[in-house]
């Protein structure tokens, strides 16, 4: 691993810790470990992992900010990767067609065929790195860099729940209908979040997902 972590303020509400280097599961395991340590701190209300980063929401913003940062960096150096290995969920996906309206944009950006894109997308077992965006949504690690496609210039006002999409070098499945800046390439049926369940979210960090192509509409 090269470089130093990057710390930045989210106003007085929180602080963002970003690990250096490429996005890896090894780094993410250290992020989970850092979250577990820091969420016990009196000045921290919530520790929220992202993709190789961690947002700390302050319970009480520390007057001595530098001391807080120093403690955070020291903790990062000390933590051992947390060896989560959760359950694996298979998701049947219908790629392309009406349920994958931005497949053409991914084709245009990557220069790959639809079949290549589907094959590359369905190949890995994706680890749930973090939850975010909306209730039950999973950020996944492990997408093949060859199908990375930039976020859309103009976000789509409403994509349906179950939309499988690519944003930059990441992929994910929307858990409910809402706006998104990502490129939707397919669709799946799965209830990721139910507030009446305990816990309400289907998956947690450390669990994993496999996409199973059911149909490919070209």
């Amino acid at each position: 691993m090269t470089g130093a972590p990057h710390l930045s303020l989210l106003g007085t509400t929180g602080l963002l810790f970003e690990a250096p280097g490429d996005t890896t599961l090894e780094t993410q395991r250290r992020i989970w470990a850092l979250a577990r340590e820091t969420e016990r701190w009196a000045s921290v209300r919530e520790a929220v992992p992202g993709m190789n980063n961690l947002m700390l929401v302050f319970a009480d913003p520390p007057r001595q900010l530098q001391a807080f940062k120093d403690r955070l960096l020291a903790t990062w150096t000390a933590v051992e990767p947390l060896p989560y290995s959760g359950r694996c969920v298979d998701l049947p996906v219908s790629y392309g067609g009406e349920g994958g309206p931005h497949m053409a944009d991914v084709v245009a950006h990557t220069g790959l065929s639809i079949d290549d894109i589907v094959a590359l997308h369905a190949e890995p077992t994706y680890t749930v790195y973090a939850l975010g965006s909306h209730p039950g949504y999973c950020y996944l690690g492990g997408m093949d860099a060859r199908i990375a496609t930039p976020r859309r210039k103009v976000p789509v006002l409403k994509i349906p729940g179950g939309a499988v999409s690519i944003g930059g070098s990441q992929t994910g499945v929307s858990a409910s209908a809402g706006p998104s800046g990502w490129n939707t390439i397919g669709t799946t049926d799965m209830t990721f979040f139910d507030v009446s369940r305990t816990p309400p979210a289907l998956l947690q960090p450390g669990d994993s997902i496999r996409f199973r192509p059911m149909r490919v509409l070209r």
Partner: peptide, 29 residues
């Protein structure tokens, strides 16, 4: 950027260059 947590008050600048301040119902990342 890699997805990360955000809070109400964050001033994001999408590709168009016109800022958007995230408010209370914004997504948390």
């Amino acid at each position: 950027l890699r997805s990360h947590g955000i809070v109400p008050g964050v001033i994001q600048v999408p590709h168009g260059g016109q800022p958007i301040i995230q408010m209370r119902d914004a997504q948390p990342s």
